[in-house]
Amino acid sequence: MKFDLTIALADRPGQLLKALKPIAKYGGNIISIIHERENPSDGFVPVSLVVDFPSKWNLQKTISDLRNMGITIIRAEEIVDTSRIIAILVGKANLKDIIQRGIKNAKIIGFEVSDPVSEDACLKLEIEVPTRLLDETLENLRRMAESEGSLIILPI
């Protein structure tokens, strides 16, 4: 699991090295470090790390160690890999309903409707889905379309 971990470090030599220790201790694999030395405030520099931890527990343990060392945590959140896909539905499915009810796991980021009142109403949806849930979400969409008697057209 990838996390965005942003901490505030005192602008003194050796601080970063110290802060990396608990990350290593709890099995974190550092993917990137951005050390924003040009933006110090009150003698502190924000450092943004992307860390791959085996689980959320490892992150929490790391955070508590960092706090014990007197380091301020600015942000610690999971980075979710998302995919954007387009789906087109044809049929008199209740389009408003789909949009209001939403689609499990997916964020609707855009839609376009044409011929909304006809038998051949057509809805184009642009959705954002966590990549690891993509197959499952597409399968849900497919089942939903089938149960409404609509045709669903998905990307190859």
Partner: peptide, 11 residues
């Protein structure tokens, strides 16, 4: 059969 002109334009 159910692929409409509208669906193609939206795509």
């Amino acid at each position: 059969r159910r692929v409409t002109q509208e669906a193609i334009s939206l795509a």
